[in-house]
Amino acid sequence: MKFVFKILKDFPSYLWSGWGAIASIFLFFACWDLGYQIYGELVLPSPLETLSTLWVMSHNDSVIEDAKITLYRAFFGFGLSVLFGSILGLIAGLFATASIMSRPIVTILVGMPPIAWIVLAMIWFGMGDFTVIFTVVVASFPIVFVGALQGTRTLEGDLKEMGKSFKLPLHVKFLDIYFPHIFSYIFPAWVAALGMAWKIVVMAELLSTSDGIGAALAVARSHLDTPTALALVVIMISSMMFIEYIILEPIKREVELWRN
């Protein structure tokens, strides 16, 4: 509780530190507009036009419905990855054999291009929700798994010994010695996995479903409707930025205050 309060208390000063980021976003918009002036509307619609399309779209129920569907798929897949990745990673980290055996499997999972998973999933599960969620899970699971595995593997023997010398009860050992260390590995892994889930969900939708933002993107492409396509991209990117900078980053800062 104290912790949540501290995050909220530091939040205004954190926001205030964001001017640099905002300046860089505006610079990006300026370059975008330059591109529009050189290549014309069909190739690259102006930021103004994109944003006005976005405004119109935001009043359109079907677009909101699409966004909700995509959000659901991304978070459901991400949630499954976090749940299983964290638990299995922790368990694998506890046993030397399990961590050695799981390494090549993780390499395979990480090395396999997501597009290949989508194709396989389409063959196995057909078109629809399940294919998308499956792809999200296989793509983001290994990231969480590796984070949890490394967190457990790198627990310091010195600190364990210190805990033992004080005869600390098991729950104190876990909460004060193991958990903060593991969390400092697993939390960044969650953030990275969320980013991955967000990207993969659109790709999978584009190829394998008829609803969601990805599918809307496919429709925009077939109509050569560049402003709509860009507006959809803006939705994806801005929501990602919101989650990363407004929600996760302040938490991360508090959590990692003790780091060098």
């Binding site: 010195d158 600190l159 010994e161 210190m162 010398s165 004080f166 004060d176 010695i177 903060p180 260390h181 400092s184 003790w258 780091r259």
Partner: peptide, 14 residues
């Protein structure tokens, strides 16, 4: 009993 180690062995997050 308690133990004081050669290195301080403090918990970095506390």
């Amino acid at each position: 009993s308690s133990f004081a180690f050669q290195e301080s062995r403090l918990l970095p997050w506390k």
